[in-house]
Design a protein around this nucleic acid. Structure first.
Lengths: 251, 251
DNA sequence: CGGGGGTTTGAGTCCGTTCAAAATACGTGG
DNA sequence: CCACGTATTTTGAACGGACTCAAACCCCCG
């Protein structure tokens, strides 16, 4: 499971304005939805849109926190590499989510990297601005608290799956999660998921090795649950995928 | 790993006043340390001290959140039981920590139980009071955010240990954690840890089975790392215990 | 003294890992 | 656009850690 793959370089591409939080397409679902109109001036003056290509880091593990990102579009992976070179993907995320806020609040360096899996556009808010806004709006703090609490619940659930479910079921669960944002429907009406992850990253997400992922892919295919071609997965019968989880005791 | 052990009943023992947050022995390290003097009146009017015997629940999984607890003394385990009856201890904690706040912020029922491992005394603050205080003090919200961020980091690290370390190393890590609050020194100068956990709970903490714990205890003993007698562990040479972690690639 | 839960021990099995090699995909320069 | 070199993925074989199931043991308590 030790994989000494290179860390993609940190490189931000700032993009000129014309994009304001108060008019953000995702504003109503975002953290900032609770801000008073007068605070938007502060936010808009400091925020900037950044675009990252697949593989680039929005946040680099080990670096101090200089601000947070809200994902406007694109997918990301929260990845952590330990001193021994072990590589694990802690979670995946997408549009509407905030990242990098953990280090902001804990006062420590980033414990994990946030890596763009696809071309990703984010709204970056500097730490000083965030601090200012948090001092003025208790409701904004509440938003972050809700997000943190949910993330904590998610983390625990992932750990439980890690402990109690075999790789095959964890893989099925991952596919079902990815279905939400990466599924299309075939001309035949079959579900088609295009994975935003390499096999290595799938392994790192499941807490296993690429070899085991390959074998699991083979087994799932052999059992008619899904067909894999590169990063494309065809699921003919969703129930079969769901069965993989029920079979091992998860509704 | 499925263990259908009974859930200890939820029973609180309210204890009469005489104990005020502003004079709490742990105030300076607590969440409430940032409150303005005028807010303590609100807090003191609503808070209550509760005492739980070992095995009782401060918080019951599946119940809505009616407030939070700050631990004044005693040890607790955050335990979660899934539909299949699997039982896992997500984390251990002690004095100074707040519990039950996750459900408060996420707005969902408690995802896990908080169980007293020893006689535990807590300061209970009703949800309505907490809500009121949070609306008035942005610094209080900041305290919770810091706590949540730290807990999130901890959760990730635990998951990493789960994935990359064998049971033996995870056990060594647990002993080193328990050392902080449960260690004494022998008449011979040896480190003695009295475990606040049954073997079953050790297993649930490590994400393994009681059988494997028993075997690991035997192995550790055989290799001269520690001597076990019931819930008492004697560690002659701390370095040997630390080696168990370095051996597998964790500093 | 006789349950009864918790703990330990034993034997066998399986899932997932490791290590090694082959096959495939991929990006790059000619 | 094709050929080449590299990285990723797949396959194979063997090993090993941890699990399961079962029985014995032990300790605490009634």
């Amino acid at each position: 499971m030790t994989s000494g793959d290179g860390i993609p370089e940190l490189r931000a591409i700032p993009v000129g304005g014309g994009h304001y939080c108060a008019g953000c397409p995702r504003l109503s679902e975002s953290l900032w939805s609770v801000l008073e109109p007068e605070h938007f001036a502060t936010l808009n003056a400091a925020r900037q849109t950044r675009v990252f290509e697949a593989g680039q880091l929005l946040v680099a593990q080990g670096q101090p926190c200089d601000g947070i990102h809200c994902i406007e579009s694109g997918e990301f992976a929260l990845r952590r590499v330990d001193p021994a070179g072990n590589n694990i993907v802690l979670r995946l995320g997408g549009p509407g989510e905030a990242v990098g806020y953990r280090a902001f609040f804990s006062g420590q360096v980033h414990a994990a990297s946030v890596e763009a899996l696809t071309r990703t556009s984010s709204c970056f808010v500097p730490a000083s601005t965030l601090r200012e806004l948090l001092g003025k709006s208790t409701r904004l703090a509440g938003k972050f608290l809700t997000a943190a609490a949910r993330e904590l619940d998610e983390a625990d659930e992932t750990r439980i799956r890690q402990v109690f479910l075999p790789v095959r079921a964890r893989f099925a669960h991952l596919l079902l999660c990815l279905r939400e944002r990466h599924a299309n429907v075939d001309s035949d009406g079959a579900l088609v998921i295009s994975l935003p992850l390499s096999r290595q990253d799938i392994a790192a997400s499941l807490g296993t090795t690429p070899e085991t992922v390959a074998r699991t892919v083979g087994a799932l295919q052999h059992d008619g649950v899904a067909e894999f071609r590169g990063r494309t997965v065809r699921v003919n019968d969703l129930d079969l995928l769901l069965d993989e989880l029920e079979k091992v005791g998860l509704g």
